[in-house]
């Protein structure tokens, strides 16, 4: 299989049934910790009975061309590849979680147990070998595709046209223009809000300003702060623990005495 240039993932969210096959396979193959996800299905319900809409959205990195997480990252651990994918270099990551706070899609997760960040990299190792991302291969409803950008967008337009013909007047394509164009193109049968997607995502001004700070000092400051905070936090927690232990011991002694008294009384 040939390696795809400028790869894009196309998800026909209008046909996603929210079964989580993608979620569980991703977790199982990559051994992602419990409670942490690289991809996850969100169920979004809008409207009031009986005019209710339910949308399923595959929440994962959209690989924004103008990526908030990359701008936020103080150590350049998050970078764009020449293929415009957003990838994380764990060696540089100080797990400051600034990317988590800035991702408009809630697609980056901190794994406390391994102290690493988890995010979808479109199965970079697989696609560099000419294979498909795992979720493309396992999607039971076969609504995830992977291929060259213009071909995927053409397919998305075709699907939107069909949805419009079927009466879905708000059918739309998400990701063609948003944040400079996403590397994940999504077909929706309704407005983005019905799927829990931000209709008009923007990079906050604060983040742009932060980006203008010369980088090296930022790394030092951030690293220093993190380590300092960590040190203080640990010391504080130790002390609190000590106090709590002593307190607990006292309480136990007291309650034991109470039980004894109760026994005497009866």
């Amino acid at each position: 299989m040939a390696v795809v240039e400028q790869p894009v993932m196309l998800i026909d969210q209008s046909l996603c049934v929210g079964c989580e096959a993608c979620t569980t396979v991703c977790k199982s193959v990559y051994g992602v910790s419990t409670g942490v996800f690289r991809t996850k299905i969100d169920r979004e319900e809008t409207g009031v009975f009986p005019s209710v809409k339910v949308g399923y959205n595959k929440r994962a990195c959209q690989h924004c061309r103008e990526a908030a997480c990359v701008m936020a990252c103080p150590t350049r651990a998050l970078q764009k590849t020449p293929d415009k994918l957003t990838v994380l270099d764990q060696r540089l990551c100080i797990t400051c979680n600034y990317c988590v706070a800035n991702c408009p899609y809630g697609a980056i997760n901190y794994d406390r147990s391994t102290r690493t960040m988890e995010k979808c990299d479109l199965c970079l190792v697989r696609i560099r070998d000419g294979l498909q991302p795992l979720c493309v291969e396992v999607c039971t409803s076969r609504v995830i595709e992977f291929g060259e950008r213009s071909r995927m967008i053409a397919k998305a337009k075709e699907r939107r046209k069909r949805l419009l013909e079927q009466g879905y007047a708000n059918a739309t394509i998400y990701g063609e223009e948003e944040l400079g164009g996403l590397q994940v193109i999504t077909v929706l049968s309704d407005a983005p809000q019905s799927y829990g997607l931000p209709p008009d995502p923007r990079i906050p001004l604060g983040l742009r300003l932060w980006r203008m700070i010369p980088l090296t000092p930022a790394v030092l400051v951030a690293a220093g702060l993190v380590m300092g905070t960590n040190y203080l936090h640990t010391r504080f927690m130790e002390r609190t623990k000590q106090v709590a232990l002593e307190q607990g011991k006292k309480n136990t002694d007291a309650s034991e005495k109470k039980v004894d008294l109760g026994g005497d009384a009866s």
Partner: peptide
């Protein structure tokens, strides 16, 4: 799942009667 999503992709119309808005109902017209 393959059956029904392919049908919808090909333009089939789907009508679901169900007291609960099941997944199928939420994909129905």
């Amino acid at each position: 799942v393959r059956n029904a999503t392919r049908a919808l992709e090909r333009g089939a119309r789907m009508v679901i009667l169900d007291p609960y808005k099941s997944v199928t109902a939420s994909k129905a017209h």
